[in-house]
């Protein structure tokens, strides 16, 4: 226990806490066309779910939507599930348009065009990606005895979140751009009697940066 006495005992937790905030996020933007949105127009953010090995989390889609709607210049965002239910069966994993040409064909259906106009959708944003834990190490063991309970050990892992947002202009049936984000960070759980989780907010950071970039992209600034 002497190791954690004095200066070392105070510095090690401090260093670990600082490292927990060390999430690095990269955002790339590729613009293919002009954008802009009127006050009566809306944006819908949809998760791609046609790949069998993973699916874009509904929570991440909601998080990006909330980020777009926040702030003084917040956009009007149609909730994903409300849109999918109203458009059923045209935007399900097996039937959703994969290209803008498919969207143009889909809009030839009277019911689809009417519902789309009813929502006032100007842009469809397709989110595709996932978060994975790529490196896990260490171990923590806990013991319960009549005199008390406690844990000892150290665990750490690295999370990597990789998402892309493809933006379609519904008025002109064309793709106007792609924004990609990649975030990674290391999480630690030191346990000296009590486990102290120091979690890197990788997906939350990816959502925040992607949401902010997406909002500026759609507004056209």
């Amino acid at each position: 226990m002497k190791l954690f006495d004095g200066v070392a005992g105070k510095l090690i937790p401090l260093v670990l806490m600082l490292c927990a905030g060390c999430t690095s996020t990269t955002v790339d933007e590729f613009r293919q066309g002009e954008t802009g949105i009127a006050s009566h127009e809306t944006v819908v953010i949809l998760g791609r779910r046609q790949v069998s090995s993973y699916e874009t989390s509904a929570d991440f889609v909601e998080c990006v939507g909330d980020r777009l709607a926040q702030g003084a210049n917040g956009l009007s965002v149609v909730p994903e599930q409300e849109f999918l239910d109203a458009m059923f069966p045209w935007f399900e994993p097996r039937t959703a348009p994969l290209r803008t040409q498919d969207l143009e064909r889909l809009m030839a259906e009277e019911q689809v065009a009417l519902t789309m106009r009813g929502f006032g959708v100007r842009y469809i944003v397709w989110l595709d990606g996932f978060t994975e834990t790529i490196d896990r190490s260490g171990s923590i063991s806990c013991t319960v005895a009549p005199g008390g309970a406690g844990c000892f050990g150290f665990g750490s892992w690295e999370d990597d979140a990789s998402f892309s947002a493809r933006i379609w202009d519904v008025d002109n049936f064309n793709a106007v751009g792609t924004i990609s984000t990649d975030a990674n960070g290391q999480s630690y759980v030191p346990a000296i009697v009590i486990p102290i989780p120091l979690i890197a907010r990788v997906e939350a950071n990816a959502c925040q940066r992607l949401g902010d970039q997406l909002k500026n992209f759609v507004i056209g600034s």
């Binding site: 059923f88 069966p89 045209w90 399900e92 994993p93 097996r94 039937t95």
Partner: peptide, 13 residues
């Protein structure tokens, strides 16, 4: 439930 939605969409279309 996702499979049932898939059935409904495939059947309808």
């Amino acid at each position: 439930v996702v499979a049932l939605r898939d059935l409904a969409s495939t059947f309808a279309l």
